[in-house]
Design a protein around this nucleic acid. Structure first.
Lengths: 203, 203, 203, 203
DNA sequence: AATGAATGAGCCTTCATTCAT
DNA sequence: AATGAATGAAGGCTCATTCAT
C-alpha cells in the first residue's frame, strides 16, 4: 500500500510538465528521454515506470498541454460578460510574457508538424479544435440570443475566428521582428470583427 | 573540369526535389539521408559530393521550396488585373489536388517547427514572409493609387492578409474533416475583405 | 517469528513452480523476474524475500525440477517387477499428454544449454545423471542377480540406456513431425534391448 | 564498383564464424553484438551493414554451422566403403580435440534450447535432421542392395541411429567426468549394431 | 512478510558522416 | 563524379536489483 495514494498522479504530472518544458526548449525532434528524465528529476527506469515508451509519454504530454490551454481559455472567456468581448478575450495569446503563450507556441508548432504524419496526433488536434470551437460557438449563440449579434452562423464563424487567431499567432511568434504585439492584437480585432460583420443578417 | 558544366545544377535540383518529396511524405524528423539518396537515385557518397551535411541539404531544400512557392504566387497574382482579385488570388492554397499545396503543407509545418529553435531557419522564414508581404503590399498600393482602395495602410494590412491565409490553411489542411474547401475560401474572402474595409479611410 | 512456520516452504514451492512454468513457456533467455512474479502472484519485493537473485532462483527451480523427475522415475520403475520392464518403464517420457514430459523438455533443453557454460549447473546435471544411473544400475544388478540378465556390466550399460532415452527424446520432442511416439517407443526398446544383449555374457 | 567483388561473401563468412566462435564460448544468451563485432574485427555499423539484426545474424550463423557439420559428415562417410562403416563413421563426434566437435556442441545445445520456442529455428533443425537422415538412409539402402544388410527399414533405422549418436553425445559432452570417449564410441557401436540387427529380416 | 517505486547499467539499433577506390 | 563499406556516437528501452515503507 503506497504511503501517498496520489503518488502516481503527482509523478505523472511532474513528468508531463518536464516533458513539455523540454519540448518547448529543444523541439520534439531534439528531445531525448534522458533530457526529460533530467528535467523531471527521475532516472530512466523511473520514467519507464510511468510511461512505457517515448510515444506514450509524448502523446500524454501533448494531451496535458491542450487540456491546460483549454482550461485557461475557458477561464479567460468567463471573465467577460459581453459576447464580443468573450470572443476577443484570447489576446493573451499574443502576450510575450505569458508563460502559457511563450511555452505553448513551441509545443504547438512541434505538435502540428507531427499531426501531418501521425493519426493519433490528428485525433488530438481534432479534439482540441473542437473544444476551442465549442467555446466560441457558445459565445456567438449567446450573442445571437441576446440581440448583440444578428443571426451569425455559429459554426463557420467560430471556425473562422479560431483560424484568424492562429494565423496571426503564427506570424507574431515566428517572426516577431516583423510582427509586433500591437499589430497582432489590432489585426485580430479588425479581422474578427470584419468576419463577424460579414455574417450579420440585415433585417 | 566537368564534362557537362550544368551537371552540378541538374544534380542539385534532382537532390533537392527528392529531399522535398521525402520530407513531405515522411516528415523531417523521420527522413534519413538514405531515404533521400534512394529518392534521388544517388548513393551516399554521391549526395555528399553536392551537400556536405544533412543540415546543408535541408536548408537548401527549404530554400528551393520557398522559391517555388513564391514564383507560383507571383504568377497567379499576375493573372488578375483588379487589386482585390490579386489579393484574393491565393485560393489555390486551398485546392486539395494542387500539388504545390498538397506537397507544400507538410513541408511548411515541418519547417515552422524547426524555425522555433533554429536561427538559420528563422532567417529563411523571415525572407519568405517578406517576399509574400511585398507581393501583397504592391497590390494594395496599386489599389490605393487607382482609387480602388481608400488609403489602406499597406504594411499592417498585408501582414494581416497573409496571416489570415495561413491561419485558414492550417485548419483546412490539418483538420479537413472539420474544414471544407468551401469554408476555407469563403472565410478567407470574408475575413480579408472585412480586414481591408476596416483600413479604408472615410473621406 | 513467522506466524506460520511452513509459510516459507509454501512460498518457495509456489515461486519455484511458477518459475518452472514460466521457463517452460518462454525459455530461460526470455523469462524476466516480472514474469515469474506475475506467475507466482507475488511482487518483486516479495520474491526477493525468498530468493536473493535470479541466479539463485533459477538454480533452485532446476533443482526442484530434477527432484520431481527423479521421484517420478523411481515411482514408475517401482510399478514393475521384471528388471527389463523396469528399464523400459520410462516410455512415459514419450507421452505427448504427460505434463511432466511436456513441461519438462523445454526446461531440460534450456538447462543443458546453460550447463555448457556454468559450473553450478554442471554440478546439478551431474547429480541428475548419477541419480538416473543409480536407478538403472539397480535394475541391471537385480537382473544379473536373478539370472534374468547374464553378467551385464551395470555401469556402461546404464549410461548407454540413459543416453538412448535422451537421444530419442530429443528427436521426438524437437521434431515431432518427423518422429512419432510410436517410433520413439519402438526404437527405444530395440536400441536398449540390443545394447543389453551386446553386454550379455555367453556362458 | 567494389574492388573485390567477393567482399560481401568474405565479410559475411568472417562475421558468421566470429559469431559461432562467440556463441560457443559464451552461450547465446550471453552473447552481445559488441562481442561479435570485436571477434569479427568490425564496428557495430559495419556489422549492421551485413546483418540487419541480431536475429538475422544468429539465424545465418546457425545455418552456416549446420552446413559445415553436414559437409563434414558427408566427407567422413565417403571415406568408408562398407555401409556399416559409413554408418559408424561419425565417431569423430566424440573426439575431444576435434574443433568441429568441441566448438559444435555448445552451439548445438544453445540451438536446441531456442528451437523449443522459435519456429524459424525449428525449421532449421528440421532441415538439419533431414539432411543427416538422408546420409544414413543412403548407407542403409546401399547395404540392403549389396546384401550386407537384410532388408533393414531405412527410415526408422536412420532416425534411430541418428538419435543414438545424439544421446551419447549429450552425455559425453555435458558430463565428461562420467562418460569417457572410450565409453561413447563403444556404446555407440553396440547400440547402433543392436538396433540394426533388430531390423534385419530373418530369411 | 510484502509492496512497488526507483535505480542505472547494458543492449540493440539507427544513422550522419567519412574515405579509399 | 560516384560508389558503398565502415565508423562510432547516441538513443530508446529492458530488466535485475534495491529499499523505504
Amino acid at each position: 500500500m503506497p504511503p501517498i495514494p496520489e503518488l502516481e498522479a503527482i509523478r505523472k504530472s511532474q513528468i508531463l510538465q518536464a516533458a513539455l518544458r523540454t519540448i518547448a526548449a529543444n523541439g520534439c525532434a531534439n528531445v531525448t528521454m534522458a533530457d526529460i528524465c533530467k528535467a523531471a528529476g527521475l532516472s530512466k527506469g523511473g520514467l519507464n515506470h510511468y510511461y512505457k515508451s517515448k510515444r506514450d509519454l509524448f502523446l500524454a504530454a501533448f494531451g496535458a498541454f491542450f487540456q491546460q490551454i483549454f482550461q485557461r481559455s475557458g477561464e479567460t472567456m468567463a471573465e467577460h460578460a459581453d459576447p464580443l468581448d468573450k470572443i476577443l478575450s484570447f489576446e493573451w495569446l499574443y502576450t510575450a510574457d505569458d508563460p502559457d503563450a511563450v511555452l505553448g507556441y513551441p509545443v504547438l508548432f512541434d505538435f502540428m508538424s507531427i499531426v501531418v504524419h501521425d493519426e493519433a496526433y490528428q485525433q488530438l488536434f481534432h479534439e482540441w479544435v473542437k473544444n476551442w470551437l465549442t467555446l466560441l460557438k457558445e459565445a456567438i449563440e449567446e450573442g445571437n440570443a441576446s440581440g448583440r449579434f444578428k443571426g451569425i452562423d455559429p459554426e463557420p464563424a467560430a471556425k473562422g475566428i479560431s483560424a484568424i487567431y492562429q494565423g496571426i499567432a503564427t506570424r507574431w511568434f515566428l517572426a516577431p521582428e516583423l510582427h509586433s504585439t500591437r499589430w497582432a492584437v489590432d489585426t485580430m480585432r479588425r479581422a474578427i470583427i470584419g468576419l463577424l460583420d460579414s455574417y450579420q443578417q440585415e433585417t
